[in-house]
Simulated scan of single mutants.
Amino acid sequence: MREGNGMTVRVNGPNRATSTGRARLLAAVAGAVVALSLTITACGSDSTADDGNSGPLKIRVAYGPGFGSLPVVIAAEKGYFKANGLDVTLTEGLDLAAYLGALGAQFDVVMGLPPGILQASGRGVALTVISGLNRTDAAHVNNPVLTKDATIKSAADLAGKTVGVPTLTGISADAVRYVVRQQTGKDVKLVQVPPDAMADQITAGRIDAAVSAIPYFTGVESRGIRVLDDVVIQAVKLATGNKDDSALLGAFIATPSYVDKHPEVATAWRKSLQQGADFIAANEKEARAILQQHAKLPAAVAANAPLPNFVATTSAADFQPFVTIGETIGSLRKTPDLGTLIHQEK
């Protein structure tokens, strides 16, 4: 446990590992977060860390480690949470499905991705999206297709191929299934492969292609692997009739009752994350150094891997493409009301 700048950081379980173990952790998290709600049946009652004392509001937050959550690390490191009236306890780890299950009891705010949030909300779990986190677009590629197969020139060519994905459910898996079905009417065989093992599996011929994630496609061209377009962007473009060429990747959620009890939290949380994002944009070298130290990354990886587009705001429009994708491939059985799912300033 580390303390400073008005926040406490708890590093759970495997995060206490060596730098090699931490690298494995970051590899796994790229896919682990995508299925955060698939095993959840209900949320706990809304106990809260706020003890009623004056001063900053105590708030317990669970999130996944990696490049995508860098604004959280920066906001804690630079004291933005405290400056905005939040006394934040951060729990960092891979158990995001369990974290969502503990939302309203052990945690006040947790990180999630659009497909998992929609699925949980559609099953009746009471959730409110209080902020965005990061986006992917042409200038900030996050989920490109990797391959050595000369016949594969786009995601549509993955029909009938064996494709590695971080997890068999979630944003990468949903996107590749949707693109292949929409463009070919066929399907694709998905196998679970950790992002840090994808290049090896492609080189060994065990898979035809893979959907990668930051930072694991950096430098793979030196091994004869081609980096194709971001499949999540392709899926969102298809789902919106080419009206949108960027996609929300991460968001933070709370229970409606917690937000009603503490209406200042959503605004303060978004402001803190946006300040973190603005710091990264203005001080990228320092931000990367902070990430390297925090995540125990190799210097070359921390310095050269691409960063997502960090944006703290979000809207129902960001979730609508994932509704279309989920309904089409059958991963979203009941569509939630996006108007009530996304927090609205009062």
Rank of each mutant, 00 (worst) to 15 (best):
D230M: 04
T48C: 14
G6A: 13
Q292K: 13
R22T: 08
V29G: 09
I253L: 04
G160D: 05
G85C: 06
Q293M: 12
G104A: 06
G21C: 04
T203V: 13
L228C: 05
E264H: 14
D318N: 01
G170N: 03
A138F: 10
V301D: 03
L341N: 15
S222R: 12
K58M: 09
T218S: 14
K296L: 13
A155L: 00
L249C: 13
V311P: 10
D174W: 02
G339T: 07
Q201N: 13
R22S: 02
I290Q: 04
D149K: 03
R206V: 04
G101S: 14
L158H: 01
V125S: 00
I225P: 00
T255A: 10
T89Q: 06
Q192D: 11
A32R: 10
A30D: 05
T169D: 10
D50I: 04
V61C: 06
L38Q: 12
L86I: 08
P263I: 02
H343L: 04
I342M: 08
E286S: 07
I130L: 09
P71A: 06
T255P: 07
P336D: 04
A155R: 01
S315F: 04
A213P: 11
T184S: 09
A204N: 10
A302C: 08
E3T: 15
P14I: 10
G164Q: 05
I280Y: 08
I130P: 00
T335H: 07
A289M: 07
G52K: 05
S121W: 04
A197I: 10
G6W: 09
L127T: 00
N304S: 12
I202Y: 06
K186D: 10
L25M: 15
G79W: 05
A97Y: 00
G185V: 03
P115T: 07
D318G: 09
A105F: 05
A197G: 09
Q201L: 07
